[in-house]
Structure formats: C-alpha cells, structure tokens
C-alpha cells in the first residue's frame, strides 16, 4: 500500500525524534514533548533531547501524566514525579518490588499498586493502603469523589481511601488488566487477559460484554465529548458508543483505520471527533469518526533488510491539549511528533 491510498498524507509534517529506548509513554508537560523510556530515563524532546535518569539502572514499567507532571513507577519499586522543568521528586519506595499500576488525579493525588497492595497518596501527601483480593493490574481515579477503581482477578473494586469499610465490587470471572472510567462516572470498563473488554454500569452493576478482539486491549481513549471509547487490540480501532444511558449495550461499535496489522495505541483528538491510531508495524493513521476518512501520519519502510531497522509497534501516542501536535513513540526507541498544518 502506498501513500496515495490515503485521502491525504501528513508524513511531511512529522519530525523524527530519537528517543533511544522502548518508549513506555509520551506526554506534553507544560507543552513540552517528553518520553518515558524502558531504560528508566525521561527525555525532553525539545531543544537538545535532555535526558534525566529518573530510575537509574531500572526500567520504567508504568506511567500516568497530566498536562504538568508525569509520574513513573519502576521495577526498582520507586515512584517519581517529574515536572516540565525536569525536576524529580520521589513519592514512594516499595523496596524493590515492581510497581504494577499507577494513576494520577487532577489535584495531584497518585494511586499505585504492588501485587495486591494498593496505595493512594492524596494531594497533601497522606498515604492510605488497601489489600486487594488478588494482584492489581490496573488503576483509575473516579471522576467524582476521592475514589480509586482497581482491576484484579474476578472483577473490580471501587475504594474510597478516606472511608473505612469494604469497597464496592463489580464482579466478572477472569483476569482483569486495565480499568477505565467514563467521564460522567457512570461506566467502568476493564480489559481482560482473554482478549475482551468487560463493562459495568456502576449504578446497577449491569454487565456489558465487548468481545471479538484478536489480542488484548491495552490502550483506551475517550472522545472529547466523552461519548465514544476508542480501543486497541483489533485490526481496526474499535470505538464503542457511550452516549445513551445503556452505554454500548446492544449496540455495534464503529470501526476505523482498518488494516491487517493490529492496533496498539489509540488517542482521540482533544477537540474534534477524530482519532490517531498506532499499529503494531509502526504505522499511524488519523481517522475521522463520522466517515472513517483516513490521513496517513507515519509509515514504516517495507523492507527491513536494507534499513536494518525492525518494524516496531507504536507504544505511546498522545495529543497536546490544543490538538495541534501528536507525539508518538515505538518499542524500538523510534519516536516523532506530528504538527498539524494550519
């Protein structure tokens, strides 16, 4: 397939960035593009590619970020906050045990998990702990109240760190990985070990099965109006409707960016009903939800023998808050930034 097969190509607006190692996450911190790498570094792409060894001799396993800060958890058991200025602050040390999941709240509160142990540190720095029934793979702050959703074996637990008592549980047999909460706080969705999603309407715990994925869903993104949930894991970006009170129950999802390679990363545009889709072969498309029109953002060369570069999956994809720049990274340390033409 060549560029002409797409409605338009944006490839000439992409600037290559050598991140240097497996890109675990990408973020815009105060507008400055930054990458968290598997080798424990955070790289600021602007100017001179400033590198900070946040987790020396360790790997960054999980991250969360907002427009100001990125929080990283490593296989050194440590959690650091890194700001746009490049200052780092250690917020926790779990004694060498791997940090399995991490979440960040708008007010600066952080939640993380180490096997079954879940901790929440509020904006003032007060840490509360909870032991989940089994290892926690995914965490998310709920939009209302100071409450943490955690994914584990056989379902989710919704925990109020400041309230004594058993958390509310949402049950479904199997191993749950990531968890995501809808913008209005009405729905919880988890990805599962067995290549499917499971959703609950939290008010009445009604179940939603979202199946048919050929691989695990590990990337989610809400549309700017909160009405659509884009997901990775299939040979297209699968987008579930959440605009009615029943969520996606009984409704078919939309698909966009259909290609043979599987989708690994999805990122809704922060203002328009369009989304960036990253694939396991390193390609990136920009897709419009309404008519599935596609623009090519990045393609990888067909012949690896001559380039010597292995095609690597897109492992990080994020828009800046204005929706003018798209930052991406791949498993082999390649990265780049698209600046949309005005």
């Amino acid at each position: 397939m060549n560029d002409l097969d797409y409605d338009k190509s944006l490839t000439s607006h992409v600037e290559d960035i050598a991140a240097g190692d497996h890109v675990v996450a990408a973020a815009f911190l105060e507008g400055a593009p930054a990458f968290a790498l598997a080798n424990g570094e955070i790289v600021f792409a602007a100017g001179n590619n400033r590198r900070i060894a946040v987790h020396p001799d360790a790997a960054i396993l999980v991250t969360a970020s907002d427009s100001r800060l990125i929080v990283t958890g490593g296989d050194d058991g440590r959690i650091f906050l890194t700001s746009a200025a490049g200052t780092t602050q250690e917020v926790a040390n779990e004694g060498g045990k791997w940090i399995d999941a991490i979440a960040l709240r708008e007010d600066g509160a952080i939640a993380w998990s180490v096997a079954k142990q879940v901790r929440a540190r509020d904006a003032k720095g007060v840490v509360k702990s909870f032991e989940a029934p089994s290892s926690v793979r995914g965490l998310a702050f709920m939009p209302k109240g100071y409450r943490v959703a955690m994914a584990h074996y056989n379902g989710l637990s919704l925990w109020f760190p400041n309230i004594v008592g058993e958390p509310e549980t949402l049950k479904w047999a199997g191993s749950h990985l990531d968890v995501i909460i809808s913008r209005d706080g009405q729905f919880a969705v988890s990805s599962m070990q067995e290549n499917s999603l499971h959703g609950w309407r939290i008010s009445d715990k009604k179940d939603m099965r979202m199946t048919g994925y050929p691989s695990k869903t590990r990337s989610f993104s809400w549309s700017s109006d909160g009405e659509w949930l884009a997901t990775s894991g299939a040979d297209a970006c699968v987008v579930w409707p959440f605009h009615s009170k029943d969520g996606p129950m009984g409704k078919a999802p939309k698909e966009c960016g259909v290609r043979a390679p599987k989708v690994t990363q999805v990122a809704f545009h922060p203002k328009s009903p369009a989304l960036a889709v990253g694939y396991e072969d390193g390609w990136i498309l920009l897709c419009r939800l309404a008519d599935s029109a596609e623009l090519l953002v990045r393609r990888t060369p067909d012949g690896t023998p001559t380039t010597g570069r292995k095609r690597a999956a897109i492992s990080a994809l994020v828009w800046d808050s204005d929706g003018k720049r798209l930052l991406f990274g791949a498993e082999n340390g390649d990265a780049g930034m698209l600046t949309l033409p005005v």
């Binding site: 396993l61 791997w98 191993s175």
Partner: peptide
C-alpha cells in the same frame, strides 16, 4: 489454570529485553 503473576512479570521483563 494459568499463573497470572507470570503473565504480569513477562510483560515487565519484555521492557528489559
């Protein structure tokens, strides 16, 4: 049956390949 912890550890180890 499968070892859930092993799946998680393998995912982390792949970042240190």
């Amino acid at each position: 049956t499968v070892r859930g912890d092993l799946i998680r550890i393998m995912e982390g180890l792949m970042k240190r390949r």
